[in-house]
Amino acid sequence: MITRRDFIKYSMQGIAITAIPFTAMELLKPSGLLAAKDIKKIRWGFLVDTRKCVGCGMCVKACQLENEIPCDANVSRTWVERYVLLKDGRVLADSPKAARDGFISSSIEMGHGKYEDVKKEDIEKAFFVPKLCNQCENPPCVQVCPVGATYQTTDGVVLVDRKWCIGCGYCVMACPYGARFFHPVHHTAEKCNFCYHRITKGLKTACVQACPFGARLIGNINDPNDEVGRIIRTERVSVLKDEFGTKPQVYYLGLSKEVI
C-alpha cells in the first residue's frame, strides 16, 4: 500500500528524471554545435612566396601610403629583407629604409653608414624575404600589454588601441619578429594589422594588391575554398621562429635556413 507521502516523493523524482533529457537537449542546440565547430569563423592568414619576390619594394611603398606611416621615418609596418650568401660562407642581409625604394644597388648596407660591395663571382645565392606582422595565434605582444591597449580580434588580427596605449614599449620588446615600432606622429605602438580596414571590406591588403609578382597572398584560412588555406594545407610551408611557440600565421614558401 503506497502512502500519500511516498506517492508525492516518487512523482517528484519521476518528474526530475524525465526533466534530465530535456536539459540535455538544451545543451545540444544545433546553433551551439555549429559555433563550437567554428566552421564559419574567419581566420586571416598570409602567404609569402619568397621565390617570386624581386625586391621592388612596391609593397612597402603602398603600405606606408595606405596606412599613413611617414615615408621619411625609418619605420615600417612591412619591409623586405635581402639575403646575400657568399661563397666563403658569410651571410649578408640588409633592408635599407625597409626597402621602400626597393633594392637598386648591389652593395649591401652594413649599418653605421657603411656599405659592402659584393662581386658577382662571390655570390652563392641571393634572395628577398618580405616580412610583416605574423598575427600570431599566441601573440606575446598582447600578453605583455599592461593596459589592454593591444588585443586579438576574433578573426585573429592583432590591433593596437591608439587611445588606450600609454607608450611603455613592452610590446615592441616582446615581439620576436621586430614587427612593432612607435608611430612617429601618434607616439603609440604601431604594427601591421593586415590592413584591417580593407580585409573587413572584402579587399586585399595594400601590399598584396601592389605586388606585381604575386609574392604576397592573404585569405581566410578557415575557408576550405581559399587559395591561401589550400596552399598551407597541401604544400610545404614554413613559419618564422616556430620554436618560440607563438604560432605565427604568416606562412612562407621557399624559405632558407639563413632567414631569421
Binding site: A62, E66, V142, G148, T153, L159, D161, L203
Partner: peptide, 22 residues
C-alpha cells in the same frame, strides 16, 4: 590574456579610409 580591451576600438580600425582602389 588576448581579449582584454575596448571592443569599440575595432570600429576605429575598420573605418580607416581605403586609399589604394586597384
Amino acid at each position: 590574456i588576448y581579449g582584454w580591451y575596448n571592443k569599440a576600438d575595432e570600429n576605429f580600425w575598420k573605418e580607416v579610409k581605403v586609399k589604394y582602389r586597384s
